[in-house]
Simulated scan of single mutants.
Amino acid sequence: MNQLQSAIRSTFALRSRGGTAAAAAARGLPSLLRDAPRPFSTEPEQPAQPEDSSADPFLRPPNTGPVYAKLFGMSRHTLKTDIVNLLEGCNLTPDDVRFNYNRMFVPMGMMVQFPSRFQFDQAFKVIGRKGRLYKLERADRSQWDLLMNYDGKTLLLQGIPFSANPNDVERFMSGCQYDASSIQMMVRPANPDPIKMATVNFPSQIQAMNAFITKNRGFCQNSQVLLRVLQ
């Protein structure tokens, strides 16, 4: 009852003091009551979108990782080391070069794996300066993966007789250290007549080159066989 009487007296006091007292009382109200109501919306708030850093070259990620390219202009006798020496200063090794052979094992081009975009750009400058017979084109990693890497450890035997079998090839390669299980024989169309060939793998490049030196133009049955080291 005493609280009710105190409230009534406060109301009459506010009315008698006029606008000044009313303003003071209003300042005492909770701030929640004075804030204007926010409009109601059924749409969810959209999160703030991050700024596009691609527009600023300083914020772009560095161009790292290997770059792959096709190189044209080599001959049938070009070696991996020839390409490494040609592109001197591009930080290449023989493992960064793979030859692209057709069905007759004629080199149609090669793939080169550059350590970075910088070395790829350097190769263009080198070719323009001392290798104008060569042509370099950007390529995909998938093209690199599809190529067989013979790595100078495989010999190609061309011109073996059609009656020859793997045992004849083993006799022909007698005295050389090679993998007998790797012998593959094939027939390819040629002009004027088809030609029979075989490939043989060796444990190392040195052993393959020794076999090439000692066996090239030797005879299998009555046919002279030409050898070539596949890169």
Rank of each mutant, 00 (worst) to 15 (best):
I183Y: 04
Q221T: 05
M173W: 03
Q46D: 10
K125E: 13
P47L: 08
P57A: 08
A190H: 14
T42P: 01
D145M: 08
F202E: 00
I213C: 02
G19P: 15
R34M: 12
D140A: 14
A123M: 13
T11I: 13
S142Q: 08
N216Y: 04
P94T: 14
A123V: 09
T93I: 07
R228G: 07
N102D: 15
N222K: 03
M108E: 15
R103C: 08
K125M: 11
E170P: 02
R103G: 07
D179T: 10
P66L: 10
P57N: 10
S116H: 10
I83M: 06
M173S: 02
I160A: 00
L59R: 14
G109S: 11
P161M: 03
E137K: 11
T78G: 04
S53E: 15
L4R: 06
S223N: 13
P161Q: 03
S10T: 07
Q143K: 13
M148L: 10
M148G: 01
F99N: 00
P115R: 02
M173G: 00
N85K: 07
I160L: 12
P47T: 06
Q205D: 12
I183S: 04
L147M: 05
F219A: 07
F105C: 02
P161Y: 00
R27C: 10
E45Q: 12
S41D: 08
